[in-house]
Design a protein around this nucleic acid. Structure first.
Lengths: 236, 236
DNA sequence: CTTTAATTCTAACAAATGTTTGGTTGTGAA
DNA sequence: TTCACAACCAAACATTTGTTAGAATTAAAG
């Protein structure tokens, strides 16, 4: 879901390659050097390869990032192997290391990229809204759609941080804080009761939204209705 | 945290063994057959060994369950290896299989046990409270303490379900539904506005509490104050 | 003491993991 | 054609994983 939305802002195109005929599931020793075309790009250098003249060759890399993001989102960091990602991308495990430096670096890049894209989406959704409560509701709605629409990339990952190596996790929570600043501003503008702790208020709200893919059930209420209900509860 | 509370109800005693002198970290081939005493118990049979005459021998098993639960809670299912658990329990990986049938069975048992204990704690906390809002607040407070006090065993696990094998996960969400029934009853008694969806109301509240260990920061507000704040928001 | 059973260790196993190295293929430019 | 290079494969590597089998240790009971 998020894949398709984020890609419009940050990544390029969603999966074009069709996930390999599944014949090479148990024995990848079979020769299949014909079904995967190739493209032109320059060398990897400190992580991501640089695009030469035009912004042309980075296509394949974005595909891989999206595929990896989708798998990380639904299975978690540890439960997603390099070989899983490679198979979905239509190549062998080792070949992935032409595009990425390591599994950890891949995860960090996905996380940061998606987080930045989400921040921009929310920013855009708030552009024409002035009323504080309306702004909060618009942000909630956008947040819900980011997580629930068709792919689930960004923030579901944020809940999985427990399975992520501590070295990686430290980098991520930093980026997460930056993201929270948006909501800090939103809550600051609300005419809330003096007895309500605005810090906790924001944390609770964000906690709800971040775990949306954990409790959302398709078919019940729409995203708009849920955002409306959330504000009906949080409004005073 | 949760370890110490649950153990009073379900398990026996928290860790007596002192986590092995860390000398056997890189080379567990060293002979250390003197530092770990043994106890008397009967054969394992379909998972857990049965206690003979008195309820005596199950002690060691409870220690292991607690140790495993603590590790699962803080690192997640996949990031916690059998050898990690064994080392903390003061024995080698293979020896664990005298007490458990498999890693999956261990996780399921821990999850169910802790969930049942949490349900009982909340039930007890509600015994003398009659006012609907007061009951909800008491339940919130108990829920917070279950997750935040000193160990974090039960429900933090529930957020990690993404890294758990699907076969195991199906069993767990069943037990989770049973747990939600408590809150379903609590919310049903509330004099809520007609426009508020009670189902979503409960789901949002539970989502908050379940992820409490994700947002709680020690030193800020106390558990009681947080429960009070939550109800200040959710009350209408 | 011997017997018996409970608990742990030793030692391996097959499979899965992240990663590296060197070769192979295709494509566009010279 | 030749050259260069991007993109991939093939094959291995060193670990780590869950798990098992059998031998050793321990302590209690006879």
């Amino acid at each position: 879901m998020f894949a398709r939305h984020v890609s419009a802002l940050v990544f390029r195109l969603p999966m074009k390659r069709s996930a390999q005929p599944a014949t090479a599931s148990k024995s990848p020793r079979t020769r299949h050097a014909k079904d995967v075309p190739a493209r032109a790009r320059t060398q990897p250098e400190d992580g991501k390869p640089r695009t030469p003249g035009q912004e042309e060759g980075a296509d394949r890399r974005h595909e891989i990032l999206e595929i990896a993001a989708e798998l990380f989102a639904e299975r978690g960091y540890r439960a997603t192997s390099i070989r899983d990602i490679a198979e979905r991308a239509g190549l062998l495990a080792g070949s992935l290391y032409y595009h990425i430096r390591s599994k950890e670096a891949l995860f960090v890049e996905i996380h940061n990229t998606a987080l930045a894209a989400a921040a921009m989406r929310i920013h855009n959704a708030l552009e024409d809204v002035t009323d504080p409560w309306a702004r909060l509701q618009a942000a909630c709605l956008e947040m819900l759609e980011i997580q629930l629409n068709s792919g689930s990339l960004t923030l579901p990952i944020m809940n999985n941080l427990r399975s992520v190596p501590t070295s990686v996790r430290d980098v991520l929570i930093q980026q997460r804080d930056d993201f929270e600043k948006i909501f800090r501003g939103l809550v600051a503008d609300l005419p809330l009761d003096r007895n309500i702790d605005k810090n906790l208020y924001r944390i609770l709200l964000l906690s709800l939204l971040n775990s949306a893919d954990g409790w959302f059930r398709e078919g019940r209420l729409s995203r708009e209705e849920i955002a409306e209900q959330i504000l009906r509860i949080f409004r005073h």
